[in-house]
C-alpha cells in the first residue's frame, strides 16, 4: 500500500491518555441499557490504543445508539437516520489520517440504511462499525425492527411481529468483499472489549454486531441467554479470541473456530439456538476502496495549473 501524502505527519513520542480524556457528558441512556457497556468498552479501547481525541471521529445515524458520539470527547458526527455509513465513508476518503468509527442501530443500519450497509461492506473502507442491535426501535418508543424475533409484540405489531428476524451477521457474511465480522453481547464485558479491539486493529471494514439488551421495551427478551450461559457459544482460536480462565468457568460452551473459514462462519451465524460470540470471519487481504481509488498526489496549485492547462489545450481553438 502506498502512503498518502496527508499521512506523512508522524507522532514521534508516546502519549498517555486517561479514560476521562474520552468521556463527555453523562449518558442519557436508560439504566441497564446495553449501550452503556459498549461505551465503556470503546472508551477503554481509545485509552489503551492512545487514540488522539482530535484525530478520532465517531459517526452515527439516528436512534438510541446514535447518541453515542455525544458521550465521546472526540470529534463526532450525529447525522441523519440511516446515513451514518456514507457520511463515515466521506470522512475517511477525505481524511485517511483520521480514525473513524460508526455507531448504528438495527433500525438505522438494517432498515432505513440497508442499502448503505450492503455497499459499505463491498467498499471495505477502513472503518470500525458497531451495530448496536437491541432488536427494537427504542427512541421512537417500541416498534418492531428488522431484527425483532418473530412474534415480538410492539406498538406497530400489537399481536406479534409477522416476519422472521433478519440476521445481520448472515447478511454481512454474504456480501462480496466482506473482511471482518464479529459478534458480541453487551453482558460479557471482557469479550466485548476483546472483540472491539480486534475490530479496531483490522484494516478494512470491521463489522461488529453487538447484541444489546433493551430493559425498557424488551425487558425479558434476552433472559434465556442471560440465565443460561451455555446458550452463548464462545468462538475461540489462536487467531481469534483467547477466553480467560475466569470466563471459561462460566462460559463452558466454547468452540474452536478459525476466522479464515467463511463457510464455517456462515454456518455458525445461522445458529438459532445459541448466540455465537467471537470473531466469525477475518480476511486482511481484501483491498480497501480508499487505497484503490485515491491517487497518491497532493492537490497543489502547481499540479492543478498544469493539468488544467493540458486539459484546456484539448478544447482550445487558437486564433
Amino acid at each position: 500500500m502506498t502512503t498518502n501524502a496527508t499521512e506523512c505527519l508522524l507522532q514521534l513520542c508516546d502519549e498517555q491518555f486517561q479514560l476521562e480524556d474520552y468521556q463527555s457528558g453523562v449518558p442519557r441512556w436508560c439504566s441497564g441499557c446495553g449501550d452503556n457497556a459498549i461505551l465503556a468498552a470503546v472508551q477503554r479501547l481509545c485509552r489503551d490504543e492512545a487514540l488522539r481525541p482530535e484525530k478520532t471521529v465517531f459517526v452515527s445515524g439516528i436512534g438510541c445508539s446514535s447518541r453515542f458520539p455525544h458521550y465521546m470527547k472526540t470529534y463526532g458526527f450525529h447525522g441523519i437516520h440511516g446515513r451514518a455509513l456514507p457520511v463515515a465513508e466521506g470522512v475517511k476518503m477525505a481524511r485517511p489520517d483520521l480514525t473513524v468509527f460508526v455507531n448504528t442501530g438495527d433500525g438505522d443500519c438494517c432498515s432505513i440504511g440497508a442499502a448503505h450497509w450492503i455497499h459499505a461492506i463491498r467498499y471495505n473502507m477502513n472503518l470500525t462499525v458497531f451495530l448496536h442491535d437491541n432488536q427494537i426501535y427504542g427512541l421512537t418508543k417500541k416498534q418492531a425492527s428488522p431484527t425483532s424475533p418473530i412474534g415480538t409484540k410492539s406498538n406497530t405489531t400489537p399481536r406479534g411481529s409477522y416476519l422472521e428476524a433478519l440476521n445481520p451477521v448472515s447478511v454481512t457474511l454474504g456480501v462480496q468483499n466482506v473482511s471482518f465480522v464479529a459478534q458480541a453481547v453487551d453482558w460479557i464485558p471482557e469479550v466485548l472489549f476483546d472483540i472491539v479491539k480486534a475490530a479496531y486493529h483490522h484494516r478494512g471494514l470491521s463489522f461488529v454486531r453487538i447484541v444489546q439488551r433493551c430493559p425498557e421495551w424488551l425487558p425479558k427478551s434476552f433472559d434465556p441467554w442471560l440465565h443460561d450461559p451455555n446458550r452463548v457459544q464462545i468462538l475461540a482460536h489462536a487467531n481469534g479470541l483467547h477466553p480467560s480462565a475466569a470466563l471459561s468457568r462460566t462460559y463452558k460452551n466454547q468452540l474452536e473456530h478459525d476466522p479464515s473459514n467463511i463457510h464455517r462462519a456462515r454456518e455458525l451465524a445461522g445458529d438459532s439456538v445459541n448466540i455465537p460470540v467471537g470473531i466469525l470471519y477475518r480476511n486482511p487481504e481484501v483491498p480497501c476502496y480508499e487505497d484503490l481509488i485515491r491517487p497518491d498526489l497532493l492537490r497543489t496549485p502547481e499540479l492543478t495549473r498544469s493539468v488544467l492547462d493540458s486539459e484546456m489545450d484539448k478544447y482550445t481553438i487558437w486564433p
Binding site: 446515513r83 466521506g90 470522512v91 477525505a94 481524511r95 483520521l98 498526489l297 492537490r299 492543478t304
Partner: peptide, 24 residues
C-alpha cells in the same frame, strides 16, 4: 490532480458521502 470521483450506491449516499468529506 489528486481528485476522486465516488460513484455511490444511490443519490442519498452520494450526498451523505459529500457531506462527510466536506465535514472532514
Amino acid at each position: 490532480v489528486g481528485g476522486v470521483v465516488h460513484q455511490a450506491e444511490d443519490e442519498i449516499a452520494a450526498c451523505a458521502f459529500a457531506i462527510g468529506a466536506s465535514y472532514a
